[in-house]
Write a protein that binds this DNA or RNA. Sequence first.
DNA 1: CACTTATTTAGAATCATTATAAACTGGCTA
DNA 2: TAGCCAGTTTATAATGATTCTAAATAAGTG
Lengths: 132, 132
Amino acid sequence: MKYIDKLRNSGLRPTKQRLQICEVLFNTEKTFHFTINQLEQKIKDSIDNKISLATVYNTVHAFEKKGYLKQIPINSNQTYFDTNVTDHHHFYDLKDQKLIDLENSDVGPINIKKKINGKRIKSVEVLVKLED
Amino acid sequence: MKYIDKLRNSGLRPTKQRLQICEVLFNTEKTFHFTINQLEQKIKDSIDNKISLATVYNTVHAFEKKGYLKQIPINSNQTYFDTNVTDHHHFYDLKDQKLIDLENSDVGPINIKKKINGKRIKSVEVLVKLED
DNA sequence: CACTTATTTAGAATCATTATAAACTGGCTA
DNA sequence: TAGCCAGTTTATAATGATTCTAAATAAGTG
Ligand SMILES: [Mn+2]
Ligand SMILES: [Mn+2]
Ligand SMILES: [Zn+2]
Ligand SMILES: [Zn+2]
């Protein structure tokens, strides 16, 4: 199975719950952005058994740690995650509270001129807020 | 007084509490980043009377709405604010959980090529995560 | 199967933030 | 200056996302 190896290779046991969450997160045409509550709803809509909220949190954090998900820095009372783990940026529609991907080519190269002693750059993320 | 006019001109009554918070926030050499709890501590350290936590929240939100403060988009359980309301960007030191200002000149112009119908760009913020 | 360790789970706890509603105050007007 | 009132402050409760707990269950191993 597609996700069994992915999980085993990461040192995560391929449990029924994790495999079902993998289907919801990764067996899609397009990548997407989500909060835990939105993911919980998606899971409810697509499987018959119940997965506890604690497991959804546990799984999302495990996947994030393994690099299969990333958090998007944004001001919201809920944490946003992204199934697109490539380097890219975001529009944030303030009215609809929706994230839209901005490819690197839509933004152009960003050259950070300032250096901090003993630190290196891990990521560069651009957030473009949109209003009507 | 310096802040009385500022508040009046914004349609905010210059109350004792607001004026004291203005002193803490704006009567400084350098701008700074803070969470509500950090600000609460600063207020306690610099005034004799008590200001309720609710008033600190109310005031910070009022000042943000008037453009005297801005939120910094970052993944944290607490909201970060900035007394520097000019267009600028941030380093985020993941280890020390500290924010460092990045001036526009340190980043260079950012040209967002993608357009979203009916929306206009309100702000462009760059977050550069630093690791050791 | 027997055993160990990881995982799931319901529910409680945490904690930043927001809501409530009563008391208070700044500013205007008579 | 007194009186009024909308705006503000305040203690406290409520909310809600997230994390914690500890017992039950499931996966891997020999
Ligand atoms: Mn958060
Ligand atoms: Mn927040
Ligand atoms: Zn994205
Ligand atoms: Zn700043």
